[in-house]
C-alpha cells in the first residue's frame, strides 16, 4: 500500500468505531486525524487529559491558557468544560471515557501494550498513557502493521509495558484484529492483502473470523 495513504486509511477505519456522543481521548500523531473522517451525523466529545472535556480544533486566536497536552495552542469545543488534572484523570481512570486511540511500539495476543519506552534510548515519560489504557472502556491501537517489516504484533511484548491486557482492538493498513480471550481474531482485511500475507506480517497466530469482511473504504 502507498506509504503516503496508510495513515489516512487507518484513521478512516478507526472513525467507524465511534457513534454519536462517544467520549474519546486521542493520542498524538495518527489518532488526531480520526475526527476528520467522522460522518457528518457523528459528533464525538474529545477528552484532553490536560484539562478539557470537549476539546476543539486549532484556534483562530491563540489563548496562552488553552493548550493541548503538548503545550500547543488549542480551543474548547461548544459545550465543552475546563477541568483540573484530578478531575481529568477521574474521568479517564473511572471508566467514563468510551475509547482511547493510540499508537504502539508492540502489542501482544493478550492485549499487553508497550508504547512508552525503548531501553537505552531517550525516555520521554509515560504522561497520561498508562492511566488512559487502564481506564478507557475500549483501547484501540492504530498503527502500521509492522515496523519496516519487523513484527509489532507479537505473542508476547519484549519491551517494558505501558499496561497489561488492556488493548481491545488493533487497526492497521492490513487488518482489523480483535483481542479476545482465545487470542487475536482477524475480523476485517484490506482486500489488497491475503490472509496469508497478514499472518506473515503478524508475530502471533491469527484466528480467522468465520465472518471475515473486507475493510470498506
Amino acid at each position: 500500500m502507498d506509504k503516503a495513504l496508510i495513515k489516512g486509511y487507518i484513521a478512516k477505519r478507526v472513525a467507524k468505531e465511534f457513534k454519536d456522543g462517544d467520549f474519546v481521548n486521542l493520542g498524538i500523531g495518527l489518532p488526531t486525524m480520526v475526527p476528520a473522517y467522522l460522518p457528518a451525523d457523528v459528533h464525538v466529545i474529545l477528552e484532553a487529559e490536560v484539562g478539557m472535556a470537549g476539546q476543539g480544533g486549532k484556534p483562530e486566536v491563540v489563548d496562552p491558557n488553552v493548550v493541548d497536552a503538548g503545550g500547543q495552542p488549542s480551543s474548547i469545543a461548544p459545550g465543552g468544560a475546563f477541568i483540573d488534572s484530578a478531575t481529568s484523570f477521574g474521568l479517564i481512570r473511572g471508566g467514563h471515557v468510551d475509547a482511547t486511540v493510540l499508537g504502539a511500539l508492540q502489542v501482544d495476543e493478550k492485549g499487553n501494550l508497550a508504547n512508552w519506552i525503548i531501553p537505552g534510548k531517550m525516555v520521554p515519560g509515560m504522561g497520561g498513557a498508562m492511566d488512559l489504557v487502564v481506564g478507557a472502556k475500549n483501547v484501540i491501537v492504530a498503527m502500521e502493521h509492522t515496523q519496516k517489516g519487523a513484527h509489532k504484533i507479537l505473542k508476547e511484548c519484549t519491551l517494558p509495558l505501558t499496561a497489561q491486557t488492556c488493548v481491545t482492538k488493533i487497526i492497521t493498513e492490513m487488518a482489523v484484529i480483535n483481542v479476545t480471550d482465545k487470542g487475536l481474531e482477524l475480523v476485517e482485511i484490506n482486500p489488497e492483502f491475503t490472509v496469508e500475507q497478514v499472518q506473515e506480517a503478524t508475530g502471533a497466530p491469527l484466528i480467522v473470523s468465520p465472518d471475515l469482511k473486507n475493510i470498506e473504504e
Partner: peptide, 24 residues
C-alpha cells in the same frame, strides 16, 4: 503516570495515607 501524579498530590493535600490505583 500523570493520573497517579494528580492523585499522589491530592492524597498529600487531602490528608490521605495514599491511593490505590490499577495504573502502572
Amino acid at each position: 503516570p500523570q493520573g497517579s501524579m494528580a492523585e499522589k498530590i491530592r492524597a498529600g493535600g487531602y490528608g490521605l495515607g495514599g491511593v490505590l490505583t490499577p495504573t502502572g
